[in-house]
């Protein structure tokens, strides 16, 4: 429940608050950060992960010009993959959230380009991935992660696990 509340607050911060604090026209992807943290800590319950990712994708979709369903699809693919990776290969150490978040950000771009190619037949290809935007998104996301992670962990994760 706490994570759902965080997601609902974060979407408003992302769309209305962080526009004033853009870093080279890029704002932090708070929802993706939340999806990564959730998939990492709740990797034992895939159903929970998919439902949370669907909710986050739904929020992102209704506040974006992208076709409805795009982010729901992207986030649940990422959620399943990240929880699988963290369950099989990683230990419960928060430091592993960093490579997972980097992977999630790049994965998000790749899936988005693939969806565009598949459904809308655009001239988009992996070569046209917005690398600059993705790298800035990773940097800004990690800065926010270091600022807020301890708060989220102490208030929510430690109580839930």
């Amino acid at each position: 429940m706490w994570f759902y509340l965080f997601a609902s607050i974060f979407i408003f911060l992302e769309t209305a608050f962080f526009n004033h604090f853009q870093f080279f026209s890029v704002k932090p992807n708070l929802i993706l950060l939340l999806v990564t943290i959730f998939s990492f800590y709740f990797n034992f319950d895939k159903l929970k992960v998919v439902l949370f990712c669907l909710f986050c994708g739904f929020l992102k979709d209704i506040f974006s010009i992208a076709s409805f369903g795009t982010h729901m699809f992207i986030f649940s693919c990422l959620g399943i993959s990240l929880s699988y990776i963290s369950q099989k290969f990683l230990r419960y150490n928060w430091i592993f959230i960093i490579p997972l978040f980097i992977l999630a950000t790049i994965g998000q771009g790749v899936i988005y380009v693939a969806i565009q190619d598949f459904f809308f037949g655009g001239d988009l290809s992996l070569a046209s991935l917005p690398w600059k935007t993705l790298i800035l998104e990773i940097i800004y996301g990690l800065v926010i992660f270091f600022i807020f992670f301890k708060v989220i962990k102490r208030c929510v994760i430690d109580r839930l696990l």
Binding site: T15, N19, N29, I31, L59, F63, S64, A66, Y112, T133
Partner: peptide
Amino acid sequence: ISFDASNIRRS
């Protein structure tokens, strides 16, 4: 009042 939730779409 707000910008796009995604960094790769602009609205």
